[in-house]
Design a binder for these strands. Sequence first.
DNA 1: GGTTTTCTCAACCGAATGGTTGAATACAGG
DNA 2: CCTGTATTCAACCATTCGGTTGAGAAAACC
Lengths: 129, 129
Amino acid sequence: MAADPLSRVFSALADPTRRDMVARLAVGDATVNELAEPYDVTVQAVSKHLKVLADAGLVSRTREAQRRPVHLEAEVFDLMTKWIERYRRQAEERYRRLDDLLRSMPNDITSTPSPQPAQTGERHEHHHA
Amino acid sequence: MAADPLSRVFSALADPTRRDMVARLAVGDATVNELAEPYDVTVQAVSKHLKVLADAGLVSRTREAQRRPVHLEAEVFDLMTKWIERYRRQAEERYRRLDDLLRSMPNDITSTPSPQPAQTGERHEHHHA
DNA sequence: GGTTTTCTCAACCGAATGGTTGAATACAGG
DNA sequence: CCTGTATTCAACCATTCGGTTGAGAAAACC
């Protein structure tokens, strides 16, 4: 339903019930009924949550008799951590550079915007005129 | 609006436009108008997105004349990475233990009383010797 | 003081979300 | 074959979400 994979994963984990399910599935596989037990919602609602997690690639279900054991797929986590780490590092590096800049010039700021090159993925020019 | 912090952060990053804003803010602070420029939505929509990011603690705004420069707060990322890493590690450890277990017992316990149900997606090997 | 710029608030709209109940499907077993 | 169990599908409902337009609010500039 949702467009890109990253949005699906973030969106799937934006719900506390679904995060709790993931937490419990990290301990071990479980059936839908087992998963539904602790919550006071219907089994159908849990089944829907599972579908969201499955669409995000976070869990897989294999038919085994009439039960459908749910299994956590941990690889998708990397998608998020990569994204997060990338921009956190970028932000922290910028912070560090700003610190250096401030440290190196006690006065006389406001003249040089930082000399960093055009950023990859920046699809927008500052035609500041 | 008053969901838990973790839900707010995940939810905030579940939108591609907001993720793009975060990516751009990692490069440097920006005003609402500057942020709105590349997207073909109204400034009000961007302002709303910013409110979501701010409620999640991902950005902060400081009034500076009539402009409100937006600043990325990278610490909140840790909230997510901690949660993610915790359960990924747990799942991987469980995997490792399961591997050891399977390695230690040569015969499979899950003997199928009925013949193969011709169902796709069977993932455990029945090496019928 | 009045205007312009920047930004937010309010009301509204359509689509998605999370929940429900009820019916259907698939399989195990008497 | 019939029944029970596990799960999903379908329709519905209330709320949220992302977007719009239109009206403020606050500061800078004339």
